[in-house]
Amino acid sequence: MSEVIYKKPDSLSDKPFHYCPGCSHGLVHRLVAEVIDELGIADNTVAVAPVGCAVTADEYFRFDTVQAAHGRAPAVATGIRRALPDRFVFAYQGDGDLAAIGTAETVHAAARGENISIIFINNTIYGMTGGQMAPTTLPGQVTQTSPYGRDPYTQGYPLHICEMLSALNGPTFLTRTAVDSVPHIRETKKAIRKAFSYQLQGKGFSLVEVLCACPTNWGMSPTDAVRRITEEMIPYYPLGVYKEEV
């Protein structure tokens, strides 16, 4: 008699992820799906997918999903939220989507205290288009569009989204986590659960920024990529809770 001790969450479909080896998207998708299963809210969930590598998230998630235009996920989520006040609504966005083209939508959804949750994948690069400089690309980081390394003098400095949003009155829970180690992955799941619970309690806007790896576009092996999160990203983007209203 065998016993099931580990299984795919019900909220994930059977379709294999198309993500590259070592990419963090699959991992974070799974964490999101686990939390939704644990909270028992799949039947009540509407997700908003971004433009970026996670654009086809609807193929993996087993709940209603709306694909947004690039950067507009918080606005689309707002529309859904206002139309369906009793549903659970979250957006899943990358750094180019959330912090460059969609900065206005992000900041204003946060400022309104819109009762939605956002999962923010920060991997310091545009993945889907093949590795261009993102708003979160680190100084000195080489990308297709910063081939000599990001030079803050001409290309500006990265955006610290959690720090920025923490200056607003609207958000109630803002945190930055990482997926570079098992403890950090566990913390990420806890953070997602907390963010989602905040929404379920009607507490308003929450965002979990997850420092993630993009080995392909970083030109690294998956293990080196994880090490980069630990050694380069976490020092620049300190982990922790930036806002937490009880």
Partner: peptide, 24 residues
């Protein structure tokens, strides 16, 4: 009902997109 003054025309039409997708 909902009246929401969006942060931009772009946000406003995307809110419409979300609300229309939700069926209202």
């Amino acid at each position: 009902g909902t009246f929401l003054q969006a942060e931009s025309e772009i946000a406003a039409i995307n809110m419409v997109y979300g609300a229309a997708a939700a069926g209202v």
